[in-house]
Amino acid sequence: MRLYFVIGDLMATTFCGWLTAVTVSHWISSTGSMVLAMGLGMAVGIMIGMVTALGFMPFFGAMEVMLPVMLAGKLSGMLVAMGSVMHWLPMAWMDAMGMLSGVLAFLWTTLAQYRVKDVYGH
């Protein structure tokens, strides 16, 4: 059962990262301003994260899906918008960067989870 949820979490964050990258690289990269692009990218990513999470939540959990997926959207939106404006990578590679953001969000959440486990008790 644990593996089922790990795979589900990873699928949800990677999908959200990819979807955000596709959206951001096509619609926000034309802003010209890096700061504006990053801000818009993050906002769009968080919104995509909220909607994406609703699709995955019935199968894989509530907060455990919603929070990392929104983080994936935020990270992907920020990085892809920045990369697009600065022409770091070809557009086709932006999708991969979005998916990588999803994996990073998953790892970030997993590490944070281990740090706060059983904060206190007597």
Partner: peptide
């Protein structure tokens, strides 16, 4: 409060 067990982050 006697005991708090964190199941997911400090949220659940």
């Amino acid at each position: 409060i006697l005991k708090v067990e964190n199941h997911f982050l400090d949220v659940v």
